[in-house]
């Protein structure tokens, strides 16, 4: 039994919900009694995800919103539309990210720019708007999926590393601004995850590859426990610790 008067279902907005971590996350959120707004560029995948959720968790569980995160101007109006249609927003999770394949001697500004636009500027547009809302409410969860790749700039993909480093720092600053107002900010740093993005990027070598669902489960647990920064799976924390402390005269000779 429960008292619906006292326990309305919270709403999570997941930006980048058509595949990969985002698609797994909306399922986990629905299981945890959230209603979810699914945002992504690809309408069919998005609507199918929403339909499956509504079939499984009840007709009012999910709504799909077609959206390209690089259309920053649309964010305030869309945020407001979601507020009106879903009637509340308790958490905003930014999962959208791209990592096009980049060769060892390739410096392609078009690719670099896309990574910064999707991975960083889109996050600023959404999480900044979320910050205003949650600051006003004095509560809420902001979740950004950054990457362990943001911890150091390696030879593999300079712009990707830079975009994730920027996101990590942005999230840290949001946390420092908002925690005093009751808003929780979570930085997520996954390692290799079995997603379309990883397949597309074609890295030379992968290990400890986990399913998107495992990452989603870790994110949800961290949200509920009020964690600030998590590596997922957790063992990447130790790898990150080592990588962060490799001195430059060695680091610049390494090939990964």
């Amino acid at each position: 039994m429960h008292l619906p008067a006292l326990q309305p279902k919270p709403v999570a907005v997941v930006v980048g919900a058509s595949s990969g971590i985002g698609a797994a996350l909306v399922r986990r959120l629905a299981e945890a009694d959230y209603r979810v707004a699914l945002l992504a560029r690809r309408r069919e995948a998005l609507e199918q995800n929403a339909r499956l959720l509504n079939e499984r968790f009840g007709p009012d569980t999910a709504r799909a919103y077609e959206h390209d995160v690089t259309h920053y101007d649309q964010v305030p109006d869309l945020f407001q539309r979601i507020l009106r249609e879903m009637e509340r927003i308790d958490a905003v999770l930014y999962v959208a990210g791209v990592m096009p394949p980049v060769g060892p001697d390739e410096f392609d500004f078009a690719k670099d720019r896309t990574m910064v636009e999707v991975n960083l500027l889109g996050a600023m547009a959404w999480l900044g708007r979320a910050a205003v809302h949650f600051r006003a409410l004095g509560r809420g969860h902001i979740v950004g999926v950054s990457s362990i790749a943001g911890d150091r700039g390696r030879v593999a993909n300079p712009a990707y590393h830079a975009s994730k480093a920027g996101l990590t720092t942005y999230l840290e600053a949001l946390r420092n601004r908002l925690s005093r107002h009751g808003v929780h900010v979570l930085t997520v740093k996954p390692g290799f995850v079995d997603t379309p993005m990883l397949a597309q990027a074609r890295p030379k070598k992968t290990f400890w590859v986990v399913s998107p669902d495992q990452v989603a489960a870790d994110i949800l647990r961290a949200m509920q426990r009020g964690k600030q920064v998590i590596y997922t799976p957790a063992r990447w924390r130790w790898v990150a610790l080592v990588i962060q402390h490799i001195p430059s005269f060695i680091f610049r000779r390494l090939s990964f």
Partner: peptide, 19 residues
């Protein structure tokens, strides 16, 4: 919407709230 008009509005018993 002027975003800063949003508030978490509580009931008297402070046992629930709505935006």
């Amino acid at each position: 919407l002027s975003p800063d008009r949003w508030q978490a509005v509580y009931n008297f018993g402070r046992s629930t709230w709505r935006p």
